[in-house]
Amino acid sequence: MSTWLTELDADAVGPAAPGPLHAQLSALLRSHIVDGSLPVGADLPTEAELQAHFGVSRSVVRQALSSLTAEGLVRRGRGRGSVVAPRGEHHRLVQRLSGLSTQVPAVTTSVLALGPEHDEAAEARLGVRAVVGLRRLRRAEGEPIALIHTWLPESIGAGLTTAQLTDTSLHAVLRSTYGVSLVSGRRQVRAVSASGALAEALEVPDGSPVLLLEGTTLDRSGVPVETFRTWHRADRVVFDVDVVTDDGRAEVEPVPVPVPASAPVPVNDASREPGALPGEAGLDELARRARELAADLDGLARGRR
C-alpha cells in the first residue's frame, strides 16, 4: 500500500461526513494534489488500495477518479493506473501594475457586466459619489483562470464599452482613450475559498482555494482611477515576487578585484571606506602632488610681483 495513503485517516471518507462518498473521496484526493502532497507524475493508490483503506465500493472509487480526470488533475491509463497530471501554471508578477492580459501568453478576456453600481467601499477609495462596475473573466488555454471586478469613477467608466474591453487591457484602453496612465498603487493578497457564483465562473468545486488580489491604482497626479478585486485559480496561477533589500535595491556581494603589488594607490581611491587613511603608496603620491601644487603656486606668485 502507498505510504502516503497509510498516513490518511480512514474515517475521512464515510457516512458520518457530509456529501456522497465519491465526492468526499475526490475532495480528499484533490486537496492533496493541489497542495503538492501528491506531486505531478506521482502514482495514485490503486483502486483496490483506496477501496480497502476507506472501506468503500469500487464504484465509489471509480466515480471519484473519473471526477478528478474530468478536471484534468489525474490521468488514467489502461494497465498503468492513475497518476497526477501535469498542470499548466501561469505566472504573474504581483508588484507590476500590468495584469494577466499582458503577463500571460494567449489570454482572452470576456466582459460579463459593465454599468453603474452602488458600492460604498469603492466610492470611498476612489473619492467619488458614483462608480461604474466592470466584471471580466480571463481564460488561458481554454479554461478560466481569473475573475476580475473593477470599479471606476463614473466620469471615466461611463464612456467605456464592452467592445473596447474584450480581449484587451483596461489600462491600455484608459491610456489610449483618456490619456490616463496608471503608475502606482497598493496591492494585497489573501487566500479565500470559492463558492456559489465565483466557483461556477472559475469552474472549480465549491470550497476550492483561490488567490484574491485587491487594490487601488493611481494616475501620475496621485488620483485614484480604479479599485479592484481579482480572484485567481490557485491551481493555475502562481504569484511571483521580486525580492529586494529594505532600501529597495537588490543586494549583491561585491567581487574583489586583485591589484598588483607594484600598482600605485590613487589618492581618491573609491574602494576605501569613508574616513579611512590611504596606504603608504597613497601617502607618497599625496606628498608628490602637494609639492607640485606648492611649486605651481610659487610660480604664480613670482609672476605677479
Rank of each mutant, 00 (worst) to 15 (best):
residue 148 I to G: 02
residue 169 S to F: 08
residue 173 V to C: 05
residue 238 V to F: 06
residue 150 T to P: 00
residue 243 V to S: 07
residue 109 T to S: 10
residue 295 A to P: 14
residue 213 L to F: 00
residue 88 G to L: 00
residue 104 V to P: 09
residue 73 L to R: 03
residue 99 G to D: 14
residue 137 L to C: 02
residue 81 G to C: 01
residue 32 H to N: 13
residue 235 D to G: 09
residue 223 V to A: 08
residue 146 A to D: 15
residue 48 A to W: 07
residue 251 E to R: 13
residue 123 E to Y: 10
residue 75 R to K: 14
residue 212 L to G: 11
residue 260 P to A: 06
residue 69 T to K: 08
residue 56 V to S: 11
residue 9 D to C: 07
residue 283 L to V: 14
residue 149 H to M: 04
residue 126 L to P: 12
residue 211 L to D: 08
residue 296 D to Y: 03
residue 229 R to D: 15
residue 227 T to I: 10
residue 111 V to P: 08
residue 287 A to Q: 14
residue 57 S to Q: 14
residue 104 V to K: 00
residue 125 R to N: 11
residue 283 L to W: 02
residue 75 R to W: 01
residue 241 V to W: 01
residue 217 T to K: 13
residue 222 G to R: 12
residue 105 P to T: 00
residue 277 L to R: 03
residue 281 A to R: 12
residue 186 R to E: 13
residue 293 L to K: 15
residue 103 Q to D: 07
residue 199 A to S: 04
residue 42 A to N: 14
residue 111 V to N: 04
residue 259 V to L: 06
residue 175 R to I: 05
residue 43 D to W: 02
residue 10 A to F: 05
residue 95 Q to W: 06
residue 24 Q to K: 08
residue 207 G to H: 04
residue 112 L to A: 01
residue 166 T to S: 04
residue 282 G to C: 06
residue 67 S to N: 14
residue 302 R to D: 15
residue 239 F to Q: 13
residue 164 Q to W: 00
residue 178 Y to I: 00
residue 204 V to M: 01
residue 288 R to I: 09
residue 10 A to D: 10
residue 252 V to L: 00
residue 78 R to K: 14
residue 37 S to I: 07
residue 103 Q to T: 04
residue 153 P to M: 01
residue 13 V to W: 06
residue 150 T to N: 12
residue 98 S to F: 00
residue 171 H to W: 03
residue 24 Q to F: 06
residue 239 F to M: 05
residue 207 G to K: 13
residue 214 E to R: 13
residue 239 F to G: 03
residue 143 E to K: 15
residue 13 V to E: 12
residue 211 L to Y: 03
residue 226 E to I: 15
residue 23 A to Y: 06
residue 285 E to P: 06
residue 35 D to V: 11
residue 209 P to A: 04
residue 240 D to P: 07
residue 165 L to D: 14
residue 214 E to P: 10
residue 156 I to H: 05
residue 252 V to G: 03
residue 130 A to F: 00
residue 18 P to F: 00
residue 8 L to F: 00
residue 174 L to H: 04
residue 250 A to V: 09
residue 87 R to H: 11
residue 170 L to D: 07
residue 134 L to H: 10
residue 209 P to I: 05
residue 296 D to Q: 14
residue 9 D to Q: 09
residue 15 P to Y: 09
residue 84 V to T: 10
residue 297 L to W: 05
residue 59 S to P: 15
residue 28 L to N: 06
residue 132 V to K: 15
residue 233 R to K: 12
residue 127 G to C: 02
residue 235 D to E: 11
residue 107 V to D: 00
residue 302 R to G: 12
residue 120 E to G: 13
residue 115 G to R: 13
residue 272 R to P: 13
residue 19 G to L: 04
residue 164 Q to K: 05
residue 286 L to Q: 14
residue 270 A to K: 11
residue 88 G to Q: 11
residue 116 P to L: 10
residue 66 S to L: 09
residue 9 D to N: 10
residue 264 P to T: 09
residue 210 V to F: 04
residue 44 L to C: 02
residue 91 H to L: 05
residue 9 D to S: 03
residue 261 A to L: 07
residue 288 R to G: 02
residue 111 V to F: 03
residue 297 L to A: 08
residue 114 L to P: 11
residue 105 P to L: 03
residue 110 S to N: 04
residue 99 G to A: 04
residue 154 E to L: 10
residue 234 A to D: 15
residue 44 L to T: 13
residue 294 A to N: 13
residue 200 E to H: 08
residue 1 M to T: 07
residue 1 M to F: 02
